[in-house]
Every structure is written in structure tokens, then in C-alpha cells.
Design a protein around this nucleic acid. Sequence first.
DNA 1: TCGATTGGTTCATTATTCGAACCATTGGTT
DNA 2: AACCAATGGTTCGAATAATGAACCAATCGA
Lengths: 259, 259
Amino acid sequence: MGTVSKALSLLSFFAPDRTEIGLSDLTRLSGMNKATVYRLMAELQESGFVEQGENDRAYRLGPQVLHLAALREASTPILSVSRRILRELSEETGETTHVSLGHDGWVQTLSHAYSPRHATKVTMEDAQTVTYHATSSGLAILAYSDPEFVDRILSQPMTAHTQLTLTSQDEIRAKLEEIRNQGFSSTEGSFELEVHSHAVPVFGADGNALGALAVAAPSSRMDAPQQAKIREALCRAGADLTHRIGGRPPASYTFYEGH
Amino acid sequence: MGTVSKALSLLSFFAPDRTEIGLSDLTRLSGMNKATVYRLMAELQESGFVEQGENDRAYRLGPQVLHLAALREASTPILSVSRRILRELSEETGETTHVSLGHDGWVQTLSHAYSPRHATKVTMEDAQTVTYHATSSGLAILAYSDPEFVDRILSQPMTAHTQLTLTSQDEIRAKLEEIRNQGFSSTEGSFELEVHSHAVPVFGADGNALGALAVAAPSSRMDAPQQAKIREALCRAGADLTHRIGGRPPASYTFYEGH
DNA sequence: TCGATTGGTTCATTATTCGAACCATTGGTT
DNA sequence: AACCAATGGTTCGAATAATGAACCAATCGA
């Protein structure tokens, strides 16, 4: 494994519930020698990717990650554009809405909005990482990704989050075909029991899905009229989001409305 | 120079007006051998920091930078918290407001808000990089930073952006002392002629300034009552922002109001 | 058709990284 | 107060990874 990859892999140990990590903890988590970890972190620190407190010498993510994120937003402003779209979609449907980003091997919840309409709602946190196969968003992304990428994702072991999670390749591929036919994904109890989610892909400039826009609700509220409403609202919002971040759907995707 | 630092330095060539860079351009910009650039970018790509289009093989920043930024926000939510504070401060003062982040060697405009009150306004873009010595925000950060950090910043060559830019160490150190005495910085025409800016530091958990909150306006509108209003509003907003991102000012900083 | 430029590749040589062993400090326990 | 475990940090001979000159195929403009 290259030196750069080793260094960057150290950054992947940071998590929403682990925003500070000491040298010895990183050594344990990574399995690398402590001197190696120290040197790699020193270079990351010099480059602004991590920083240390003065007294508490634990490592934290540094300002450079915000700078690069802002630069990424300059070209694909998914974070800033999705904020309002999530809020409006949440108000319109009365449910939790969120935008996810596809990574190599996992899906990231990027941003979300809650509706105050119901006290019971699906909650989530940004920067959370979830699997492709078990989530509505992940499946929506896969359905409109490169076949090689899909192969790579589906060749990894697929864990069952609930007893309703699809884990066999055949089942998942059939599900992807269903999504391609109807333009959105719908899962119930796949990632979490009693939660019904719908998602549509969000496309980049190259016509591949780079993320997904989703509505998640307790299954008990999801009657047929409400589902139809969510699907229609999602297709409109997905078109809007893709369009405004400078993306465009592939010719085969004809489900967006209003664009 | 370590291999990790070399790889990460390639990322610093991305800019708001250069969100895509080809292999040969990166080779020219960096001065490294093309094979080296290729391999380093391949590792950055494997780690999700950059990606390439399918047809257009130019490199762009990848999804991992958004993920890390979201993780950084989990511990120091300066981006999300500042959004509303910027908007309210902008409405209250009628001028452009912005939050900046201090990096090693430069200052980044992180987020901004415009007021619709006047047609003539100071404009800016996120992810823009500016200097410490020539900006109100930069000077506000320096005034509340480690002496060693200040020494390092002031030992670099200091360019004059306008004929009003302070460039001598003595002048700048005197300015920093003035800021420490009054709790905010005020510059006129230093970075751009006809622009008057005020800024207060934003502190991290360790009592050092990690950023600044600023109001920028055309000098022609800055009469004494308006300046007093801006200063008072900035101190209040700066206290609010520092407090809500989990920071705390050093004992010597007594200018925040409301906290 | 040709030349310039692009993105990408190879392998002998060179430079960097590695990690076992070590150190100083800190904090908890007895 | 003494001891031990754990922390962050350091060293240098050995091992490994990175380097870059030279090359290739494709593309595009003249």
C-alpha cells in the first residue's frame, strides 16, 4: 500500500462520535507502527488536514478539509443547493428528507431536514456512513452507476442490517432493475425496521449518479396516497437539485419532472 | 519533502476558478515529474480525494473532502452555525458579512451573507484565499494567536495589495496591539480600496482564534454611528458564534457581549 | 500527413519509509 | 511516596517504496 494511501487511511478513523483521536489510539486502530503513524500524521498536520490541541495532543481534522470542501462546492454546490430543497421537500411531505453522497464502498449522509409536522420522525446525522445495498439512497445511486462500480460494490460481503435486508446479488440486481424501470427506489425495513424510504438519484455532469435525494418516514404513515405524493415530490426535487448543481441525467432517465 | 506532503500539495492547486486540472497542467504547476504526479493522483483518487470524469480525464476534488468536512463540522460546526449568524448580522448592519478560517499561511473566506439594503455592496466568494496582514479578518486572528504563529506569518514577505496595506512588521505588530486593546480590527483600503472592514476573532476550545467574523462595507457609508453599530453587533455575534461552536475566548478577551 | 500535446506506463536507480527499541512525562494505584 | 502502565515522541540501520528518463498510444490542430 502506498505511503499516501496509508496516511489518508488514518483520516478515515474519524467519525461523528470520534472527532478526536490520540496517537496511541490511531496506532491501535490502524495496526501500523507508532513511529509510522506519528510521521504520517505530522505530514498531514503540516498540510493542514489535522491539528492538535495545545494541551490535549489528540488529533482533530484541520481547516484544510473545510477549504477543499468549499472548493468542491464551487464546482458542484450540492451542499448549499440541497439545503433549501431539503427544507421545502420536508415541508411538502411532512417527513425527514436527506441528501446522500456516494463514495467508493459506502454512502454518506450529507445533509438532512426534519419536518415539525409529526413528533415521531426518522432521525439521522450528517457524516454518517451507510451501506449501498441496505439503503434506498445507496440503491438509487447504484442503479445509475457504472456496471464495473456496481460489480465492485456487490462483490463485497453484504451484511444484513435487519431480516428484511436484501443480501444476495441476484435479489439486489433485480431491485436495481426495478429502480431503473420506475426511476426511484423504495425500501421498507431494509436498513432499519419500521422505516420506509424513497430515493431518487442525483446526477453529476457526466450522467452518473453522484448522490441521492431521499424521504424517510415511519412505515405506519406510508399509505398509498402519501407514497404517491412523496414519489412525485422527489422526482421534481431531484430534477431541480441535479439541474442546479450543474448535473444532467442520462438519456435513459426520463422520470424527472419540471425539467 | 515527504511523499504525503507532496501528494497533498497537489490539492492546493485547485481554486474557485480552477476546479478541474489535467495531468499535464498539474505537472507544470507542481514542477514534479509527470509519472510522479500520476501516481500521487492515483493514490488520492483511490482514497476518494479526487476523481476523474469518464471522457474528460481532468481531476476534480472528490467526495471524501465533503465527508471530512462534515466530520469536522461534527466537532466544530462553524459552517452551519455561522450561516444564520451571518444572515442576521447582515440584516442588522445592512452590509456584507463573512466568516473566515485561519490556515497556516493564509486565510480562507468560509461563508458570507449579503444584505439587499444597498445596491452597492462588497462582494466575495467562498473558498477565496486572502492574506493575514492585509485583511481585517486576518489581523483579528493574528491578534489572538500563538506568538510563534504570529512570528512565522510575519516573517514571510508581505505584499501590498493597495498603497494603504501595512507591510512592515513594526506597523503590523502595533496594529495587533491596537486590536488586542479594543477587541476588534478595523481596516480601510488595506485589501481593497474604498472598502472598510471590521472583524472580531472567533475562538476555538483552546482559547486561540481559529477564525474571524467580519462586516465589510464601502467606505463612503461608514460614518461614526454606523461604525459604532457594526462594532457592537460584531461583538455580540462573535460571542454567540464562539459559544455555539464550543469555543471559548481567552481570559484576556473581555469584549464579547451577552456571554 | 505531421507535429505538438495529451494521458498514461516502465524499471533500474535513488530516496524515503520503516519499526524495534528507546525516552520523558503523566496519571492512576497501592 | 513509589511504582506501573500508558501516553506522546524519537532514532537510525535495514527494507521498501518512490522516482523520473524514456517511452507509448491517442487526439487535435495546422
